[in-house]
Nucleic acid binder design. Sequence first.
RNA 1: GCCAACAUAGCUCAGUAGGCAGAGCGUCGCCAUGGUAAGGCGGAGGUCACCAGUUCGACCCUGGUUGUUGGCUCCA
Length: 635
Amino acid sequence: MLNIELKDGKVLEVAPGTTIAQVAEGISRRLAKEALVARFNGKLVDLNRELNEDGTLELLDASTPEGLDAYRHSSAHVMAQAVKNLFPDTRFGIGPAVKDGFYYDFDTEHVFTPEDLEKIEKEIEKIIAADIPFSCRAVSREEALEFFGEKNEEYKVELINELPDESEITMYTQGEFTDLCRGPHIPSTGKLKAMKLLNLAGAYWRGDEKNKMLQRIYGTSFPKKSELEEYLRRMEEARKRDHRRLGRELDLFTLEEEGPGFPFFLPKGMVLRNELENYMREMYAKWGYEEIRTPIILNRALWEQSGHWDHYQENMYFTRIDEADYAIKPMNCPGCMIVYRHGQHSYREMPIRYAEMGLVHRHEKSGVLHGLMRVRAFTQDDAHIFMLYSQITEEIKNVIRMVDEVYRIFGFSYNVELSTRPEKAMGDIALWDKATDDLRQALEELEIPYVVNEGDGAFYGPKIDFHLEDSIGRTWQCGTIQLDFQMPEKFDLTYIGEDGQKHRPAMIHRAIFGSIERFIGILIEHYAGAFPAWLAPVQVRVMSISENNSRYVQELTDRLKAAGIRAEADDRNEKIGYKIREAQMQKVPYMLVAGDKEMEAGAVSVRRRGEGDLGVMPSGDFLERILGEIRERQQ
RNA sequence: GCCAACAUAGCUCAGUAGGCAGAGCGUCGCCAUGGUAAGGCGGAGGUCACCAGUUCGACCCUGGUUGUUGGCUCCA
C-alpha cells in the first residue's frame, strides 16, 4: 500500500495503480466532480495519473490558479480541435492559457471572420457535448517529429527540435485531435461549462516580427455560466470607463485625424493637467528638486554625443535649420546634461535634482497608438539626479518613497518591475551590473516586491518601472527609475570632490507620472471620470430653481470663484431635475441648489455626487467644507 | 510597421435592390416658472472619411489612401 498525504495533513492508504480521480472519488463526490488537475509530489499532473509511489497530493479545482489554467488551456485545445474539424488544412502554433482566458494561433489560407467564430463555437459545443477524454502519451523525440512532420505541422516540429535533450515529450489527444503539449489537462471535454470566443487578431509566430503572422483567436472559459456572464458584464462596464470615451463625454481631450497620436487638450482636460503639474511641483519642493526647462529642438551633434542618433533614430523626428540637422527631442536627458555642464559643481551640493516637465516627441508606429496611453507627443514629469556614488542607494530609495507617496494620493496600487540590460545596450557590462545591483538593493532594502524583466532596460541603463492598470486590466508603465552611468561619461560631467580633484557623478533619470498624458488616461479610468474635488474640472455647479433665483445663483458662484473654486452657474430656464441630471452626468462633485428658501436664508442646498442630497447649510459652511476637501486632496 | 475589422449629423447608432439621407440625445427658438437624474412644441444641422474606377446613376460595388478599434512587434 502507498501512503498519500493530503493537503490537510490527512494520510490515505491506497493500492498502487489507483488513479488520482479514484482517490478524489474516495474522499468526496464534490472533489471528484470539481477537481481538474492535481499536484503530486510538487508536480502538476492529470487526474487519470496512476499513483505508484508514496507522496503528497493536492487536488486542484477551478478556484486555484493551476486548476483554472488547466481548464483554460484545455479550452484552447478544444477550440483547436473545432478549428481542425471545420478547416482541415489549418496548422497549429501555440495555445496557452492567459490572464482571463486563452488563445490559440493558427496558420491557414482561410482568413477567419467574426462569423467563423460563431461556427467554431457551435463546433466547440458539439465537442463538449461528446465529453471526449483527454489522454496523454509520452513519446520519443523521433516519434514526435515523425507524427507532426507527416502532418506538415512545421511549427510543432520547430518546437520539438528546440526542446532540451532531457525533457519528456508528451502528446495529448482528445478524439481525432492530437497536440504536442506539456499538460496537464482536465479529464474530459465535458468538464467545460462556459466558453466564449472573444476576438481575432494577428500575431507573429513566436512573437518575432520577422516571422510569419498567424491568426490568433482569443477566448475565455469559466467553470460556471454565471461566471462567464459576470465576466462579460464586467468587461462591458469597463468599456464605459474607457478614457477615450470619457474624454469625449467629459470634454477633456480630443484626437483628430490631422494629428494622429498628438492629443488636443480641451479646457477641462487642461484643468486636470494643470492640477497634476501643480501637485507635482509641490512634490518637487518637498523632495528637494529644482525645476528647469530645456529646448525641444537641438542640433545633431548633441544627439550624436548622447547616443540617441545611433540608438534611437527610428523613433525621432528631424528638422533642418540653416542647412544644419536638428532633432526634436525624444527624451529630456541630453538637454539636462547641458544644464549640469553649464556650471561647476561641488560634492557639497550633491545630490543635485533637476526636474523638467519636458515635452517629448517620439515616432511611434501607427498601429501602437492608443488614446492618451500611447501617443507621439507627451510630457514627462522628468528629473535627473546627479550624485556621489556613495549616495546612489539612498537616493534610489528616496525616489521610490516619492513615487509611493504620489501614487497613494490617487489610491493606486501598482506593480514594480526591474528591467535589465537589453541586447542593444550602450556601455560596458560591469557598469550595467553595478547599476542593476544598486536598483535591486534599493528595492530589497525597502522590501518592495518586484519581478525581473530580463533585457527590457533602456539602451543607457537598467530601470525600475512602476506599472498601473487600466479599466480592463491592461497594465501601463508610468513611473520609472533609471540608473545611468553612460550619460555623465558621454558629456564628461564632473564635480569637484573633497580632494579638490574632478570626479564623475552618478546619475538617475526618474519620472513619476511617467507621461502626464498616460497618467491622465489611467486616472480617468481609475476614477471612471468622477474625479475627487481637487482634480475635478468643475468642482461646483450652482443651480437655480426658477428665474427668481438667478441673481442669487450668480452671486454664490462669484463668491466661490473668488475663493479659488472652479464653480459654474446654471441659471438656465430648465427644471431642477434636468439640471441635476446633467451635472450628475458631467460628474461634478458638488451641486448646489438655490431656490427661494435658500435665498432668504443665505444658504445653499448641497448635493454631493454619489451621496445625494446633504441638506441645507449656510453658504459659508459649504465654502469651508469644500476648501478643506480640496486642500487635503481628499479622495 | 504587421494581421483583421470598422468609418453615415457634435455624440450614440439605424438605413438601401445601386435611384431625393433617418432616429434618439445634444444644439437653437418658442411655450411652460419649476425643489434633487430627462416638461412640451418647433427649427437648424450631412461632399455618408478621402481619392480613383465600374455604372444612365454610387452612401451602397471594386481598388487605393487616411484614420480608428482589437491584437502582434515596440514602448512613457
